[in-house]
C-alpha cells in the first residue's frame, strides 16, 4: 500500500512538471517571445485553457503528501520554509497576472499584470529548482546557497525550453512544432523531479501513514481515478487546436 501511494506521489510530481512546466516556462519567456501586446495575448491565449488543469496537480501532490506521508509533510515543509514561502508567493503573483490582465482596459494595466505573470513564473521555476536541489541533498539546514541558485537557474532554462516547444506546437509559428518534440520536452521537464523522487524513495516509504489510513484513501480515491484522467484528457482534446480563447 505504501508503494502504491509513493508511486501516486511520484506520478503527480512528474505530471506537474510535464504539464505545469510549460505554463511556467512560457510565462518566464513572455517578454522574449511576446514583444508586442498582441503577441503576448496569443501566448497567454495558448496556455490559458490548460493552466487550471495543470497547476492543480501540485494541489493534489500536497494533498497526497499530507494524507499519505503526514510526518514528511511537516518535516519537509518546515525545513524548506523560506523556499516554500517564495514558491507560494510566486504562484500567487503568477495566477493574479493571468486572472487580472484582461479585467480592465488600458495598456498600462495589462503590461503591469504581464509583468506579474513573468515575475511569478520566473520565481516559480527558481524556487522549484532550489527545492529539488535541497531535497536531493537531504534537506540541509539552510537551503539557500550556491547549489540551490544553480539548480534554480538550470530548471528555469529547462522549463523555458519546454514552454517554447509548447508555444511552437500550439501556435504553429514557423514550421509546425511536432507533438513528438513537445512530448520530449515534457519528459525532460519531469526528469529532474523523477530523479529526486528515486533518490528519496527509501526515506518516503519508511515514513508512510499506517495501512488503515492508506486503505481508506485507496478505497475512496482509486474508483475516481478514471474520472480524474478523463477530465484531463477532455481538456487536451478540447483546447489543443483551433482559435485561442480570450478570457485570461
Amino acid at each position: 500500500m505504501d508503494i502504491f501511494w509513493f508511486l501516486t506521489f511520484a506520478v503527480l510530481l512528474a505530471g506537474y512538471f510535464a504539464l505545469e512546466g510549460f505554463d511556467i516556462g512560457l510565462g518566464a519567456l513572455l517578454p522574449v517571445l511576446g514583444r508586442s501586446p498582441a503577441d503576448r495575448d496569443r501566448l497567454v491565449g495558448a496556455m490559458a485553457p490548460f493552466v487550471l488543469a495543470n497547476e492543480v496537480w501540485l494541489v493534489a501532490l500536497a494533498g497526497v503528501l499530507f494524507g499519505a506521508f503526514p510526518v514528511l509533510d511537516g518535516r519537509a515543509l518546515s525545513r524548506l520554509y523560506p523556499l516554500v514561502v517564495v514558491l507560494l508567493l510566486a504562484w500567487i503573483v503568477r495566477d493574479a497576472g493571468l486572472w487580472f490582465r484582461r479585467r480592465a482596459d488600458g495598456a498600462a494595466w495589462r503590461l503591469a499584470w504581464d509583468g506579474a505573470l513573468w515575475a511569478g513564473s520566473t520565481g516559480l521555476a527558481l524556487a522549484w529548482g532550489a527545492i529539488l536541489v535541497a531535497v536531493a541533498r537531504g534537506l540541509p539546514a539552510s537551503p539557500l546557497d550556491v547549489p540551490a541558485v544553480a539548480g534554480g537557474l538550470a530548471l528555469l532554462a529547462l522549463l523555458a525550453w519546454h514552454g517554447r516547444t509548447f508555444a511552437a506546437w500550439r501556435l504553429q509559428d514557423g514550421p509546425r512544432g511536432s507533438g513528438r518534440a513537445l512530448l520530449l520536452s515534457a519528459c525532460a521537464a519531469a526528469a529532474p523531479a523523477v530523479l529526486v523522487m528515486a533518490a528519496a524513495a527509501g526515506h518516503m516509504l519508511g515514513n508512510a501513514a499506517p495501512d488503515q489510513t492508506l486503505t481508506v484513501l485507496s478505497v475512496m480515491v482509486v474508483p475516481a481515478a478514471p474520472i480524474l484522467v478523463g477530465a484531463q484528457v477532455w481538456v487536451w482534446r478540447t483546447f489543443s487546436r483551433g482559435a485561442l480563447p480570450t478570457f485570461f
Binding site: V59, A60, G63, V64, F66, G67, D73, T213, V216
Partner: peptide, 9 residues
C-alpha cells in the same frame, strides 16, 4: 490528513 487528501484529489 485523509479528508484533506480526498479534498484535493
Amino acid at each position: 490528513g485523509a479528508p484533506l487528501a480526498m479534498e484535493t484529489l
